[in-house]
């Protein structure tokens, strides 16, 4: 029962912030500032979510750093999401096994 309620709560509080602005806000925003602000939001969110947390994403920080560097280099050369994720995981796994 506890689990069921907890799961329900998680679903609701995840949906609310997603659905409210989208359904309640119909008008085009005129302000250049706010439009620009919204344009930069995704990059700010991803940046803040990734660093420094990525360094703690695996047990050994040096391996996480090596994995991060490989992801940055691959991303710089325009490799896709999946390739970058696969290789970063592979690199960390390789470090885990070999070092």
């Amino acid at each position: 029962m506890y689990l069921l309620f907890a799961m329900l709560i998680m679903a609701v509080v995840t949906y609310i912030p997603r659905v409210l602005p989208l359904t309640l806000f119909n008008k085009k925003i005129q302000s250049v500032y706010i439009r620009s602000f919204l344009h930069y939001v995704p990059y700010a969110v991803l940046g803040a979510m990734t660093f420094p947390h990525v360094f703690y994403s695996t047990k050994h920080m040096p391996y996480a750093i090596i994995g991060t560097l490989s992801a940055i280099i691959l991303g710089y050369y325009g490799k896709g999401l999946l390739i970058v994720a696969m290789i970063a995981v592979g690199v960390v796994y390789g470090c885990n096994i070999l070092l």
Partner: peptide, 24 residues
């Protein structure tokens, strides 16, 4: 277990793959 540990970086690697080309 070593593979389970390595999977922890997958999400962040995806984030990086989105950000870095845009930064460039």
């Amino acid at each position: 277990p070593l593979m389970q540990d390595a999977l922890g970086i997958a999400l962040y690697a995806m984030f990086i793959a989105i950000i870095v080309p845009a930064i460039r």
